[in-house]
Design a protein around this nucleic acid. Structure first.
Lengths: 332, 332
DNA sequence: CTGAAAGCGCTTACAG
DNA sequence: CTGAAAGCGCTTACAG
């Protein structure tokens, strides 16, 4: 191993093992098809040369990239982080490279990121954000496997793995009504999913005979830092709410801090509901009542769907509903 | 544009524009070198065919991947998230694809991720975690540009962009002593950088005539959720500290919540210092005294260093110190 | 179970 | 400013 050796290639391994490059390639990608003794010699040659396969060349030849693009709005304060983390872990464990695209809160960079993924001939694109028409057209034209995750549109561009946001909103409404709350305040982020949840909430709340809730808006994503302004706005309301429904556990946490700082007790003076069941929800004082989304399950279903495509198996459902689960804790 | 067209190739664009593939390639990668009129025809042909370059083929031919691997321990509760977000944004803006590797808290997957990056012939690997000997050897052998970020070892594997953790610890010690605190409690995560900061803190604290601080340990990363146990341990101490020094703003935030829940006032009864100046530090009640690291600057310096390599410019420093800044807020 | 050879879709000296 | 052609490092029918 002299310091100036060029990077070893398949050919170097092959000649060292006394076989053709085809056989080495087979051994690497499909060891069973190679005779055991030959395989041993190849393994030794790989170790001796320190060979690391060139997946760029391999990808070009096989037209399989083993690359999956994951598109997320942002890394900080993101309610998807558990899902993303699970996704990246499971993909990596399967030998798949994850290409990360940050699309910005309103998906500004989404199209550029999708083009980049297509340029690299990604096996699939997993998107956590909403999709507009130009993007749909681009995706369809490229025929890339496209996963919309964390939502469940009527007619997915390709495949969707998620849950019904309106239903989640309705569940929260029923839960709060069941607990006897009467004056909810809805804090809705300016994104389509948050709006769907709020719409579901209101529909159910009114259907159950509740008074119309008061409402506030925040910029997406629903962050801890929004709490000061939101709480100040709530205090100025004519009718003080008895519970605040938030778009994330982070905002809920912030409101708890604000309420307590003002001398209010949570939940007695003001209750708070979060969303996402991020780790902080179970760790805050008081612990936060929230809606749990099984991020690992979303990750697994997404990966299974991708593999059905890659391995040309029978297609599964186009809409995979992983559901959600309301977790009652101390804050409401 | 009939629905069954195969994906257009460079050749399709070339024949449509009446030029060779070489000229189209030049136009795409280096437009200035192509005559304006020819360029116009090529642009039109690209639009008409909906051509998206195949970067896999391009990368193989040019042996430039325009791919950078970013290795981080975890996505949630990560103090690096601002740095990573900045890094991904700036790299993407420069047309570079980011490959994301999750290495786990103790860098368990780091070697596998580095192999994956080398397999894709990444132009550079940016690592936010500590590096062991096998990894050093692997990196050196592959001759990939390797950036260690958020730390500043004496002898970097290749290039380091970060700051001195011992110095940061010393600064915190001086600051707290200046404010008149007398009984600090150090909560150190079981990672090398946290230990360096704590060592720096203790050295300076003792040098300034302080009594030996009490200490606790947490699993890396320093998370919000550690606060309950840490606070309980503090309460059992013979000598109650007057300030707790944490490895992250998240843990500091958790301790504030715990202290307040126990009826202690922060900072009067117990002060708290965080680390990282994540967004929550300025938004918490009370706001958190912490150490700011300029994540964007780290990102910019890292990218500049990569480009010096890629474009074969004169090499810059091997150790780039971006410093840090203690921010005094309400919590200490 | 293995090899010879074509081909994946680009880039880039080289020549003009 | 542009083209013909070799080559990047693999994979994979095809044949044996």
């Amino acid at each position: 191993m002299s310091g100036t050796d060029p990077t070893p290639k398949l050919e170097d391994v092959a000649s060292r093992a006394g076989v053709s490059t085809a056989t080495v390639s087979r051994f690497i990608n499909n060891p069973d098809v190679v005779a055991a003794a030959t395989g041993e010699r190849i393994r030794a040659a790989i170790d001796e040369t320190g060979y690391i396969p060139n997946l760029v060349a391999g990808g070009l030849a096989s037209s399989k990239s083993r690359l999956v693009a994951v598109l997320i709005p942002n890394l900080t304060n993101s309610i998807f982080n558990d899902t993303i983390e699970a996704m990246v872990e499971e993909l990596s464990a399967g030998g798949i490279t994850v290409m990360l695209g940050l699309t910005g809160p309103h998906e500004i960079q989404a199209e550029q990121m999708i083009r980049a993924a297509i340029s690299r001939r990604a096996d699939a694109i997993i998107s956590t954000g909403p999709i507009n028409e130009p993007i749909k057209a681009l995706v369809r034209r490229s025929r890339v496997t496209f996963l919309q995750v964390w939502e469940l549109p009527e007619d997915p561009v390709d495949i969707a793995v998620g849950f019904s946001h309106p239903d989640a909103g309705r569940d929260i409404a029923r839960f709060l009504m069941g607990r006897g709350y009467q004056r909810p305040h809805l804090v809705t982020a300016n994104g389509s999913r948050a709006r769907m949840r709020s719409a579901g909430f209101k529909e159910e709340w009114l259907a159950q005979g509740g008074q119309a809730p008061s409402e506030g808006e925040v910029d997406i994503p629903s962050r801890f830092g929004h709490a000061r302004r939101v709480f100040a706005e709530i205090r100025r309301l004519e009718v003080q709410p008895d519970v605040v429904v938030c778009g994330s556990d982070y905002l809920a946490q912030g409101l708890i801090v604000e309420a307590q700082t003002s001398g209010l007790r949570v939940p007695d003076d003001l209750a708070v509901v979060g969303f996402g069941n991020t780790s902080v929800a179970g760790e805050m004082r008081p612990t936060i009542t929230t809606v749990d989304i099984d991020g690992r399950r979303i990750a697994r279903e997404a990966i299974a769907a991708i593999q059905r495509r890659t391995r040309e198996l029978a297609p599964g459902e186009r809409r995979i509903d992983v559901g959600f689960r309301l977790i009652a804790r101390e804050s409401a």
